[in-house]
Nucleic acid binder design. Sequence first.
DNA 1: CGCACGGTTGAAGCGGCTCAATCTGGGTGG
DNA 2: CCACCCAGATTGAGCCGCTTCAACCGTGCG
Lengths: 240, 240
Amino acid sequence: MANAFTKRLSGYAPLNDVDVGLLADACRNVRNVPAGHHLIMEGDNPDPVFVILEGWACGYKILPDGGRQILAFMLPGDFCDIHIAVLRAIDHNIVTITPARVATLPRAQMEALVEAGPEITRAFWWSQLVDQSVLRAWIVSMGRRTAQERIAHLMCELYIRMRNIGLATDAQCKMPLTQLVIADAVGLTPVHVNRVLKSLRLSKVMDLSFGALTIIDPVRLAEIAGFDGNYLHGRLEQAG
Amino acid sequence: MANAFTKRLSGYAPLNDVDVGLLADACRNVRNVPAGHHLIMEGDNPDPVFVILEGWACGYKILPDGGRQILAFMLPGDFCDIHIAVLRAIDHNIVTITPARVATLPRAQMEALVEAGPEITRAFWWSQLVDQSVLRAWIVSMGRRTAQERIAHLMCELYIRMRNIGLATDAQCKMPLTQLVIADAVGLTPVHVNRVLKSLRLSKVMDLSFGALTIIDPVRLAEIAGFDGNYLHGRLEQAG
DNA sequence: CGCACGGTTGAAGCGGCTCAATCTGGGTGG
DNA sequence: CCACCCAGATTGAGCCGCTTCAACCGTGCG
């Protein structure tokens, strides 16, 4: 009965079996989509809310000059866009990064869930707030951290999030991001991302290659990143 | 009965007189605080939620190296920290920028409000989502915009927000920010903020001085900033 | 085979930073 | 009333991190 979605939400509020059942049932409507498939485009008429069950996605915005800024990565269990269930406007795009299984919950069903139980509402609310903490952490990174620190911080965030949903081993996890995608996320050039990744590899801190992240020296990585995982409810040293 | 708080929330959901009464009543407990007063410090034991009734505040985070990154500006009617009403942890500081009148709502009262009416809950939720849109816009700025574009965008945002709460005239509003504060918000050096402000002044786009913003050429300003006010529910051209 | 995409590397340029000095206005003590 | 001080604004000179431009490589795939 449990899927990535109910698992993640269970971490946010004490859901009983009925709640979990309702949530799992809401995810009944599943679609398989390939990598690079747009779930939401700016200007679309928003209706259903998407939940990632398997795979990765990201939200991004295109600037007038053609540049792209990634705003968030969505991992299994994540809502793509609760906000459009309330706000009507869509102000950014969402695209899959890998092939993915996504559940579509019609707006009506979302409202039914909210009515159904206070714990579910609380879990939604909480999930939203964690997302917001992530956004804040990104702002700190982009505003005040060097290229190396930014990338290290992003890797810490993603590793911990993967670990929190049981998709990371001791010091490794999948990380299906091209250097271009990373560049668009941290506000750098792909070229420079390449150089930074190389330097982190050579200094035996971490290694990102072949679609996987290996953390070689977690302590040093966290130091470089200035990473404090409290906002994600997880620390780097507690790995495993 | 209406104050900045109820006014802002009324824009987000159709509140009836009872709702407005409840909200106004919740703001009964008011404190006057001087500029530079910390409402919340990292590590505090969170209890009450703060609402700004008059004046400006900002949330920020201090980095290991002593640098400061401002995460949000709070204007009259804004919640400082709904998130801590749900999450227990405090991961950043909140300080007043000007002398301010702030209402303190004990956590219990917040919960009572949420129970009291679906429209109030909806307004809170909505308010939260608008805040989130602002965070996303900041990320775009810090990641992909030049110094001039960033500052122009911040000024657009703050002007529209001021206008939305009736605190801006045709092309002017109070803007009680030192260049240091702006620098900490947009991720630049105070020195460089100074140069950019000068260039914007000389090119007759906008003028920020003596604690006030004057928009001289709104169209050009919006162009430079790449500003699309939809996320704030207001455009620059509709001023007045 | 050839193409496309992602990764890698080098060289040169520039936007924003650092360091440092000067200026201004408002507040304060004598 | 004046001397002083201090925070914020302003300006200049030199430097550096990151960008830009441009190549080249490896690999998967039609």
